[in-house]
Design a protein around this nucleic acid. Structure first.
Length: 313
RNA sequence: CGCGGGGUAGAGCAGUUGGUAGCUCGUCGGGCUCAUAACCCGGAGGUCGUGUGGUUCAAGUCCCACCCCCGCAA
C-alpha cells in the first residue's frame, strides 16, 4: 500500500524529524511538507526561508506555507492531498479539526518532553530551567487540545549536570526522530495502545519571554546556573553591565570563594571572573557584550568591558 | 530601504583636533621566590577588513564603494 504522508514542522527540531522521515520513505510513498511561511526577519528585515522550507525545496518535496490553516484555501488544499498520516513537530500553527481528524491515521506529534509535563512551546528550555533531572520525547496521537493527545510512546533521557539547552535540544531531536521512525510500522498496523495523559500532572511550558531571559543574581548558584544552561545558546541569558550595556551569558560554573559582595558584583577577575550570587559565586565562561562577538569572560576584562567591583544586573 | 554597534599584533580593546601605532592578557627568554595563577626585566609578533580608490606634503585617523561580524526589533 502506498502511503501519503504530510509533515508539518518549523525549525531545527522539526528538520531533524523530516530528514529521518524522508530518508526512510518507502517506494511509492509520498511526502508533502508544511512549514510556517517565510517571514521578514533578521537584519534588513528580508524574507528568509526556514530550514524546513529549504530542505523541502532541495529535495523537491511539495511545500505548503499557509499563513493559517483556518482559511478556506488552505483547507481545500490540505484535503486535496488526501493524507493518510500527518506527522507534526513544532509546527507553530494551530491545527483545526479537519486536519486532526481528516487523515486516516490522524496526526501524530513529536513533543520534546515527557508528557503531560511541559506541554507547550518551550519544553526543552523549561525542563532545564526548572531543574528537571530527566526529560525525553513523547509521540502522541493529536487531539484538539494543546499537547493533550493520547501518548503512543515515550523515551526518556537524563539531563546532564552541565548540559545546556543546545546540547539537549539536539539529542531530543534525534531521539524524537528515531522514536517516530521505530513506531511507524506499528502506527500503520494500528498496533499501538494509546495512553491517555493524566491532566492533573500536566504543566505548561510557555514560550520563552524576554523576562525569562533576564538573569538575576539574587538567586542561589544552582538557580543562576540553571537559568544560563536552560537558555544557552538560544535565546540565551541576559544581564546588564555597570554602564547599562547588554551582556549575554552563555556559560558559567559554580565557584567557591570567601569574598563578599552584593549579588551580581564581580568579586574577582583573575584567574576567573567571579560573580556573587545569593549563596556563593559563579565563574563566568563564554559571554557576549552588546554588539560584540562571543568571548571568554577574561577577554572581556582585558578589553575593559568588565571591571572588578562592577555590579551586573 | 526597520534601528544600531563594530572590523587595529594569538585574544579582548585604545588611538584625542590627520604626522607611519599603544594598553591588558597570552606567548618566548631571563630574574625574584619554598612556591605561585603573584611580582620584576627583556623579546617576538601588526601591509590598521577590502579597493594597486579619492582628498592631502602626510590617513588607522577625513570622503566614496564593496565585503564580513554582531546587538535590538520582528
Amino acid at each position: 500500500m502506498n502511503k501519503k504522508l504530510i509533515f508539518m514542522g518549523t525549525g531545527p527540531f522539526a528538520l531533524t524529524a523530516l530528514q529521518g522521515l524522508w530518508e526512510h520513505l518507502e517506494e511509492g510513498d509520498t511526502l508533502a511538507v508544511y512549514t510556517k511561511e517565510a517571514k521578514k526577519a533578521g537584519r534588513g528585515m528580508k524574507e528568509k526561508d526556514g530550514c524546513v522550507a529549504l530542505f523541502a525545496k532541495e529535495k523537491e518535496l511539495p511545500l505548503y506555507q499557509p499563513h493559517s490553516l483556518k482559511e478556506e484555501e488552505a483547507k481545500a488544499q490540505f484535503l486535496a492531498l488526501d493524507a493518510d498520516l500527518v506527522v507534526v513537530a513544532s509546527y507553530g500553527l494551530i491545527l483545526p479539526p479537519y486536519v486532526i481528524h481528516g487523515p486516516r491515521f490522524g496526526c501524530v506529534n513529536i513533543h520534546a518532553s515527557l508528557l503531560p509535563r511541559h506541554r507547550g512551546a518551550a519544553p526543552i528550555n523549561r525542563a532545564i530551567l526548572e531543574g528537571d533531572a530527566v526529560t525525553g520525547v513523547t509521540i502522541m496521537q493529536m487531539d484538539e487540545g494543546l499537547d493533550t493527545g493520547d501518548m503512543l510512546k515515550t523515551c526518556s533521557t537524563p539531563i546532564g549536570e552541565d548540559e545546556c539547552v543546545g546540547e539537549l535540544f539536539e539529542r531530543l531531536a534525534e531521539m524524537g526522530r528515531d522514536l517516530l521512525l521505530s513506531l511507524l510500522p506499528d502506527i500503520w498496523a494500528k498496533r499501538l495502545q494509546p495512553i491517555p495523559q493524566d491532566d492533573s500532572l500536566s504543566t505548561y511550558a510557555g514560550k520563552i519571554t524576554r523576562e525569562d531571559q533576564e538573569l538575576s543574581f539574587y538567586k542561589n548558584t544552582k538557580q543562576v546556573l540553571a537559568t544560563i544552561r536552560g537558555l544557552s545558546p538560544i535565546p540565551c541569558a541576559l544581564c546588564h553591565t555597570a554602564d547599562g550595556q547588554l551582556l549575554k551569558i552563555f556559560s558559567a560554573t559554580a565557584a567557591e570563594t570567601e569574598l563578599e559582595g552584593v549579588p551580581g558584583q564581580i568579586l574577582a577577575v583573575k584567574p576567573q571572573v567571579l560573580v556573587k550570587t545569593v549563596d556563593g559565586a559563579v565563574a563566568l565562561g563564554l559571554i557576549q557584550p552588546e554588539g560584540k562577538g562571543r568571548m571568554n569572560a577574561l577577554d572581556a576584562v582585558n578589553g575593559r568591558k568588565l571591571n572588578l567591583g562592577d555590579i551586573l544586573q
